[in-house]
Design a protein around this nucleic acid. Sequence first.
DNA 1: ACAAATTTAGACAGTCTTGTCTAAATGGTC
DNA 2: GACCATTTAGACAAGACTGTCTAAATTTGT
Lengths: 229, 229
Amino acid sequence: MRSGVSPDTFPPRGHEAKRLSIVDAAAGVFCREGFAGANIDLIAVEAGVSRQTVYNHHGDKEKLFIAVVRDLTERCNAGIFATIATFPDQPGDLEADLIGFAVRLNQNCICNRDGKFLRKLIQTEGERYPELFAEWREQGPGRTWPAIAARFARLAYGGYLAIHDPDVAARQFLGLVNAELQTTFMLGGTPSEDDVVQSATNGVRTFLRAFGKRPSPTSVKRHAALANA
Amino acid sequence: MRSGVSPDTFPPRGHEAKRLSIVDAAAGVFCREGFAGANIDLIAVEAGVSRQTVYNHHGDKEKLFIAVVRDLTERCNAGIFATIATFPDQPGDLEADLIGFAVRLNQNCICNRDGKFLRKLIQTEGERYPELFAEWREQGPGRTWPAIAARFARLAYGGYLAIHDPDVAARQFLGLVNAELQTTFMLGGTPSEDDVVQSATNGVRTFLRAFGKRPSPTSVKRHAALANA
DNA sequence: ACAAATTTAGACAGTCTTGTCTAAATGGTC
DNA sequence: GACCATTTAGACAAGACTGTCTAAATTTGT
């Protein structure tokens, strides 16, 4: 099998596709039912494979669970970094740009399927697999938060914000922007786009009241004028 | 039994004590293991009673679970309202008073055993019992958030804050004050007192930068001067 | 000390789940 | 068409758990 014509993956194509669909289905079932309540027969059915195939691929309920978390962490991280790349480094309209960034972050990374699932698995089973979730912590928040903080530091350096501690500012930015979604998140729901925009708008406005550079209340216009000059 | 000398509870005293210890132990086990993974034998052992007694009191695993959530909601609500009663309505040092309030709220209602357990149960099993957690939502956030918002409105009315929407301000206050504890909460950990104070301090400072009444950056001193006058 | 209610220990049937095994079936590749 | 690995269906053993039942032990109130 290793000397086949296939270019990159040693097993044929359908193989990896099945692996993916198993991990996908498992993510859903683990989230709905919890680790203990998750039924491997059900995962197999939802993945459209036989139970034996699940065992062939992952060997074990626990190994399958670990694969699910690793998979979700990887995909979520990719999404977050892709979104961080759209951070407004040289904003035209600071408020609108930050709101846009916050909405993108929420919609693409936190409220989407992967984000919802990963969050729930961390909350639900985090204590049962300390090493696994320590790994997530390093790879996830440990890398994304500083990246966001660095962007805020750059905005401050560029004169757009008055920030003392970029790390604190980054955490507070996220706290503010999600302030109105907490209850929904808690119950595992998905906030509507309107809710996300509303929360982001209110959050960014407060953020800018705290950290925006404005000797006078007309600062927004002044910034716009600078940008257009 | 109903015509006994006991003043309020019809069953004897030891009875209710056992009921309590069962619900208490069940809360811990449900949180650690999830509903499906919770073992009634284990609950009985941790409660110091026999398994049969668990069934005598609650009849059913599901009924026991519901009793646990109701119990936690009630106790947490009581704690939150007791803490809201300590909100600084006529603050001397606004910053210090708000930090104190935030720390009390965290330590007495969110980071304590009941708060931790209730949060985890909501996150873990919220979707499985929609009516039960709708009830929690009404009794919990539905009553506590407006109560906090009302206190902020009063501060604004008293001239201590510049707030347009007290509900938004209340949510953002909580978001800011907990901004640095999110990761710890997610993994089910309990932040140290230092962490709580740190997060509250940073959060309140940012909150006051956004909503504090200060025509000039020397507002803090001005407020202090007013308070001492 | 007596009587009633409560608690306990243990056995028990029934159900569910995991993980293994085997033999047949499927699908792609030369 | 033949060969290869992969997948499938089903049976299976071993273990765990829930909820019930019974008879003995214990607690509580008088």
